[in-house]
């Protein structure tokens, strides 16, 4: 079946089998290996990407279901050579150890901040509650997302003053 999926702003057309999962479409067809592939059972959340701006577990979405839709992966967070605030937060606050859960965490964090710009710790913990960090580094992940929220607030305030 012929599908066109817009990934990180770029349309990609491929001939795929209906049974191809979105995670494998991204990794194997488009070579976007930033999206990781974990438990295969929609538990661990490392395969999380945004589908039309909403975080989904791409091991449980068929590629054909993304036909005509927009997907954002970790490769799409950077803008004009500058890391997204959530990526900077993970750098600043040591938000990753092995890095396996990181891309999924970043996309969930981005979607959370788009909706709730100033989340408290409870809201952050709830937002990432469908994702596992096998290094158990949750404390720093929460701090990283808070850092991103505060940094974005500061940018917004300084822009408002100008």
């Amino acid at each position: 079946m012929r599908i066109t999926v817009t990934v990180n702003g770029q349309p990609h057309t491929r001939e795929v089998e209906p049974r191809l999962l979105l995670v494998h479409f991204l990794r194997d067809e488009l070579s976007l290996t930033g999206t990781h592939w974990g438990c295969d059972t929609s538990n661990c959340g490392v395969c999380t990407v945004q589908l039309d701006g909403v975080p989904v577990k791409s091991c449980t979405v068929l590629a054909v279901m993304a036909d005509g839709h927009e997907v954002t992966t970790v490769e799409g967070l950077e803008r004009d050579g500058e890391l997204d605030a959530v990526q900077k937060g993970f750098v600043e606050c040591h938000g990753l150890q092995c890095g396996f859960c990181t891309p999924g965490m970043l996309l969930t964090a981005r979607a959370l901040l788009d909706r709730v710009p100033d989340p408290d710790e409870g809201q952050i913990r709830e937002a990432i509650s469908g994702q596992l960090c096998r290094c158990t580094g949750y404390e720093n992940i929460v701090r990283s997302i808070r850092w991103a929220a505060e940094a974005s607030q500061k940018v917004a305030e300084s822009e408002a003053r100008q």
Binding site: S42, P55, E126
Partner: peptide, 9 residues
């Protein structure tokens, strides 16, 4: 029910 990401779908 499930988790927030599964609930999105």
């Amino acid at each position: 029910i499930a988790d927030p990401i599964v609930r999105n779908r």
